[in-house]
Design a binder for these strands. Structure first.
Lengths: 145, 145
DNA sequence: TTGGCTGCAAAGAGTTTGCACAGCT
DNA sequence: AGCTGTGCAAACTCTTTGCAGCCAA
């Protein structure tokens, strides 16, 4: 079962934060698109469509910041552009971004941890890499070359 | 033996590009700091000190772009901020950036390739990751927790 | 001589912040 | 009623671009 918008709102409420129309719309968009990576722009657009009203981008930034510091949402960077956000519970995989076709491949934590254990073994460094995508070529594009 | 500023200038020259005072200063700074990761700001400051004259940031960007497309320089992203540049010949290692102390650990290509072969094996994805650093905790900071 | 390179200024993307007012609790 | 959250506008960082004059080849 996935986190619903009500779960998100409830979590905000229990942090002593207030529930407002913009926050409802933003939480709704996040919950409804829990399986995607949304930029602030996406979120802004979706929330506006939802609320059928104008929202300011800074409101979106401030709301996700609140959700992020409450631990419900995380952001990461796919390539150079804007950061992408998703529910924290969806974060248990690593992203591989294809430089050629722009697709993202995911590796789940278990597999990724195996790989990163090798890094730690050789360097002592503990990788914490949900935060940045690794660029390269996806299986399909790798064949093309 | 390392690449010298003259090597860089010579390479520009052989691309039909012109040698100017700003370019001398920028190539000098790159060659002299070949073992570091320089932001455009660093490079700008170093080149100004060197040339004892004012240089525009856009000149640094444009020169770096020329050197990069000539294959002599690469850039990568350590964390969120500005890109860092270094000589392409120094690029044969991967970067691990400590979120705690800001230090960078490097893994050379051979080791890194071993690890990434595991990714390819499991997903078909071919990682090309000199471009982004992997965040985490360096050996020392990992102990602290 | 002449086309590439420069500085300057402005613009662009992504993000943050100050402020006065609206509105949640 | 009080204080948090909002929209608006401005600022900030990093980077790119247009333009007119300068200078390396």
């Amino acid at each position: 079962m996935h986190i619903s918008d009500e779960d998100l709102l409830q979590a905000l409420r229990s942090q002593g934060l207030r529930i407002t129309a913009p926050r409802r719309a933003i939480c709704g968009a996040l919950a409804r698109h829990h399986n995607t990576h949304l930029t602030v722009d996406d979120l802004h657009r979706l929330a506006e469509e939802d609320a059928e009203t104008h929202l300011d981008r800074s409101t979106v930034y401030r709301t996700i910041e609140a959700l992020e510091s409450a631990g419900l949402v995380t952001h990461m960077h796919l390539g150079h552009g804007a950061a992408v956000y998703h529910l924290a519970e969806e974060a248990h995989h690593h992203h591989l971004l294809c430089e050629n076709c722009g697709s993202t491949t995911t590796v789940d934590d278990a597999d990724f941890d195996d790989m990163m254990a090798l890094v730690t073994e050789r360097t002592g460094f503990v990788v914490n890499s949900h935060h940045f995508a690794m660029p390269g070529r996806c299986a399909d594009c790798a064949k093309e070359v």
